Measured scan of single mutants.
Amino acid sequence: HNLTITQGKLFFHYNPKLCLSEIHKMEEVSGTKGRQERNDIALKTNGDQASCENELLKFSYIRTSFDKILLRWEPYWPPDFRDLLGFMLFYKEAPYQNVTEFDGQDACGSNSWTVVDIDPPLRSNDPKSQNHPGWLMRGLKPWTQYAIFVKTLVTFSDERRTYGAKSDIIYVQTDATNPSVPLDPISVSNSSSQIILKWKPPSDPNGNITHYLVFWERQAEDSELFELDYCLKGLKLPSRTWSPPFESEDSQKHNQSEYEDSAGECCSCPKTDSQILKELEESSFRKTFEDYLHNVVFVPRKTSSGTGAEDPRPSRKRRSLGDVGNVTVAVPTVAAFPNTSSTSVPTSPEEHRPFEKVVNKESLVISGLRHFTGYRIELQACNQDTPEERCSVAAYVSARTMPEAKADDIVGPVTHEIFENNVVHLMWQEPKEPNGLIVLYEVSYRRYGDEELHLCVSRKHFALERGCRLRGLSPGNYSVRIRATSLAGNGSWTEPTYFYVTDYLDVPSNIA
């Protein structure tokens, strides 16, 4: 807008934040220059609390790290170098490059900038070799853009010569660093050979998330399962459950009422301010606690030095998902009996873990797994792929695949051998790939016309006998059925096997 004052003059007093240069501009645009008398524009009460600059400061050096910015700028000295009290560095987070010096300023003089007072450097006698002032900004957020400017702080001049310097606002972004852990990993099994893994992005990506790394490792069953005799009275049979499938998407929606109208769909109840505040506090606490764990609990591995020492970490090797089922080394339970199943799973520490690289999504279907087997899954978020990966501390989750139908069934015939004193040795093959492992066998036998009897055969007993022995049988026709019990439950009964026990007292003698 054009402003013209045809008559009258300007009068400025007691404006401590208004620089004289701005008042002189007002004289020019209003056409009143030359009308004012000496005392109409006070030299001592206008701009006496402001830094009124008329020179431009330029930054000469900028260096960044993930949490620091090192700045240096060209030296500046007023005509009387004693008038320079120091520099004021202003900075704040700036997602967009549209910041002005006066953003967030209120009537009390406060604003949204963080201000650092910096002492002037030592003055050199040689004007050509003056030290460049600077400042190291610490405690910054990774991968965050900051708006920065600097200006001088000078003393009051009796001659009211307006001098000083100020830089333009520059924008500097800190470097990326390792992201925080992925949030809320959930693993479920939808079949006997697959596990579905879902997660949420890290709360602090500290860069642009480029991919996720998912490692999985087959877990050995508890050692007590191999040692305890679950045929003993009072000892509860062990059981394991597989990871249940995901709930429906509708039930997972946030901010939804727990109660549904019987007449149909209901609208979600909005969260109160107290609920939102509580969630923010919980989120802040979780982030602080995660940072504490990362800094205190997890110790970084030592990389190899120039002395030739090897990095103890196993090298990563990509495998196809079809090879995942046989990740671990199978060892027989008892070496003397080769027909026992290889369900003991000690994992070799030198073995390469299978892994998958996930790009542009937060889910993965891990296939080719062994049925009813526990897996430990390790999830890392990465925001750099080359020249070397920059990934987060791992988040861990466990899951067990679903049982395989008929995996616990005894394959092959049940054979028998009759000894003296009416002892019958029953023999059968253990299931080759049971659900988890076989903890015991149930032997059901009966003599024709009598009630059915049951015998429990422990895992250890089966390994020693290759089956079991029935003792003290009365003469007669017998039928026997056997079924295995694994961590997933009972298998199917075998087809009945028949044998006849004679009275050993009636056996004919070869003595003449």
Rank of each mutant, 00 (worst) to 15 (best):
246 F>K: 11
473 L>A: 03
325 G>N: 11
218 R>Y: 12
454 H>W: 04
491 G>F: 02
341 S>D: 05
315 S>D: 12
229 D>R: 01
439 V>H: 09
222 D>T: 06
448 Y>P: 12
495 E>Q: 11
208 N>W: 13
466 R>L: 09
402 M>P: 09
344 S>L: 10
322 G>M: 13
509 S>Q: 15
397 V>D: 01
439 V>D: 01
301 R>W: 03
291 D>I: 04
258 E>W: 04
338 P>E: 07
218 R>A: 09
442 E>I: 07
509 S>R: 08
308 G>R: 12
276 I>N: 02
428 W>V: 03
471 R>E: 15
302 K>D: 14
232 L>S: 13
332 P>Q: 14
257 S>C: 05
435 N>S: 10
259 Y>A: 11
289 F>G: 02
334 V>P: 11
379 L>V: 09
300 P>V: 05
474 S>R: 07
276 I>W: 05
427 M>W: 05
448 Y>M: 15
493 W>H: 04
330 A>R: 15
261 D>A: 09
471 R>G: 07
487 L>N: 08
379 L>A: 05
288 T>V: 12
366 I>V: 11
420 E>K: 14
436 G>L: 11
223 S>I: 09
423 V>S: 10
216 W>T: 08
439 V>I: 10
404 E>P: 11
422 N>L: 05
225 L>W: 09
486 S>P: 00
290 E>I: 05
240 R>I: 15
242 W>F: 07
403 P>E: 00
299 V>Y: 03
484 A>E: 10
214 V>N: 01
352 H>N: 13
410 I>Q: 05
434 P>I: 07
353 R>M: 13
247 E>I: 07
368 G>W: 14
407 A>D: 03
257 S>R: 03
286 R>T: 02
436 G>S: 13
401 T>M: 01
232 L>F: 08
327 V>G: 05
301 R>V: 03
215 F>T: 09
353 R>Q: 14
446 R>S: 07
365 V>W: 06
484 A>Q: 03
232 L>N: 15
323 D>T: 14
447 R>Q: 13
453 L>F: 05
308 G>D: 08
461 H>D: 15
316 R>G: 11
366 I>N: 00
505 L>G: 13
424 V>C: 07
333 T>N: 07
235 L>Q: 04
216 W>F: 15
359 V>D: 00
354 P>I: 10
441 Y>T: 04
281 E>R: 05
340 T>W: 14
223 S>C: 12
398 S>W: 11
474 S>Y: 11
443 V>A: 05
478 Y>T: 01
425 H>P: 04
460 K>M: 12
252 Q>D: 14
494 T>F: 00
383 N>D: 02
481 R>A: 10
308 G>H: 04
348 S>R: 13
381 A>V: 06
245 P>Q: 13
452 E>K: 05
288 T>I: 15
421 N>L: 12
497 T>V: 08
436 G>F: 11
419 F>S: 05
282 E>G: 07
345 V>P: 15
356 E>D: 06
216 W>P: 07
440 L>F: 03
371 H>Y: 09
493 W>F: 11
426 L>M: 08
224 E>I: 07
311 D>P: 13
449 G>F: 11
306 G>M: 12
397 V>S: 06
235 L>V: 11
211 H>A: 09
239 S>T: 14
433 E>C: 14
466 R>T: 06
502 T>A: 13
443 V>D: 03
317 K>G: 09
377 I>N: 03
249 E>T: 12
496 P>A: 12
243 S>C: 12
424 V>R: 09
403 P>L: 03
226 F>Q: 08
373 T>M: 10
266 C>K: 11
227 E>V: 13
375 Y>E: 00
232 L>V: 15
213 L>A: 14
347 T>Y: 10
303 T>G: 08
365 V>R: 09
238 P>A: 02
500 Y>P: 05
270 P>K: 08
432 K>W: 10
262 S>M: 12
416 H>W: 10
408 D>Y: 03
266 C>L: 08
351 E>F: 10
317 K>S: 11
359 V>M: 13
206 N>A: 08
283 S>D: 05
457 V>W: 04
471 R>M: 05
459 R>L: 10
335 A>R: 13
431 P>C: 11
434 P>H: 05
454 H>P: 05
245 P>M: 06
285 F>T: 03
383 N>Y: 03
372 F>K: 01
241 T>L: 10
224 E>T: 10
335 A>E: 12
326 N>L: 14
360 N>C: 15
497 T>E: 08
460 K>Q: 06
297 V>R: 02
473 L>S: 01
256 Q>N: 08
420 E>V: 12
419 F>M: 10
304 S>P: 13
278 K>W: 12
371 H>Q: 12
469 R>N: 14
506 D>T: 14
244 P>T: 11
490 N>L: 04
313 R>Y: 12
389 E>D: 07
265 E>V: 12
275 Q>R: 03
363 S>I: 12
431 P>S: 05
252 Q>P: 09
329 V>R: 14
322 G>F: 03
406 K>Y: 07
502 T>Q: 07
260 E>L: 11
468 C>I: 07
308 G>V: 13
363 S>F: 11
365 V>I: 03
442 E>W: 13
318 R>S: 15
399 A>I: 06
239 S>F: 15
211 H>Y: 15
390 R>T: 05
300 P>N: 03
256 Q>S: 09
215 F>M: 09
481 R>H: 01
365 V>H: 15
249 E>R: 04
416 H>F: 11
431 P>E: 00
301 R>M: 05
318 R>T: 10
400 R>V: 05
342 S>T: 10
386 T>M: 13
282 E>A: 07
307 T>N: 12
487 L>K: 11
282 E>I: 06
226 F>P: 06
476 G>F: 02
383 N>E: 01
387 P>D: 00
368 G>V: 06
267 C>G: 03
226 F>A: 07
273 D>Q: 15
429 Q>F: 14
368 G>R: 12
429 Q>Y: 13
308 G>T: 12
372 F>H: 08
414 V>F: 04
293 L>C: 02
225 L>I: 07
463 A>C: 10
229 D>I: 03
345 V>Y: 11
324 V>E: 08
479 S>V: 08
257 S>I: 06
415 T>S: 07
274 S>L: 07
322 G>A: 12
275 Q>L: 06
448 Y>L: 09
317 K>P: 09
474 S>I: 12
275 Q>H: 07
474 S>N: 11
500 Y>C: 10
447 R>L: 05
387 P>S: 07
329 V>K: 10
492 S>C: 07
337 F>I: 10
327 V>N: 10
298 F>H: 01
377 I>M: 07
228 L>K: 09
307 T>H: 01
232 L>A: 12
496 P>F: 14
285 F>S: 07
395 A>M: 10
319 R>D: 09
422 N>M: 08
214 V>E: 01
241 T>S: 05
382 C>L: 02
337 F>C: 10
341 S>R: 12
345 V>A: 10
377 I>E: 00
249 E>Y: 00
303 T>P: 15
300 P>S: 05
269 C>P: 04
303 T>M: 07
391 C>T: 01
265 E>S: 13
247 E>V: 08
346 P>I: 09
251 S>M: 11
255 N>T: 08
277 L>Y: 01
354 P>H: 13
216 W>C: 12
211 H>I: 11
287 K>C: 02
306 G>Y: 07
402 M>T: 05
309 A>I: 12
263 A>F: 05
510 N>W: 13
385 D>L: 13
336 A>N: 12
508 P>W: 11
460 K>H: 10
203 S>N: 15
415 T>Y: 08
332 P>H: 14
309 A>G: 11
320 S>V: 13
443 V>H: 00
484 A>T: 14
265 E>P: 12
432 K>L: 09
387 P>L: 10
257 S>P: 08
285 F>E: 06
335 A>Q: 10
213 L>Q: 14
463 A>H: 09
490 N>A: 05
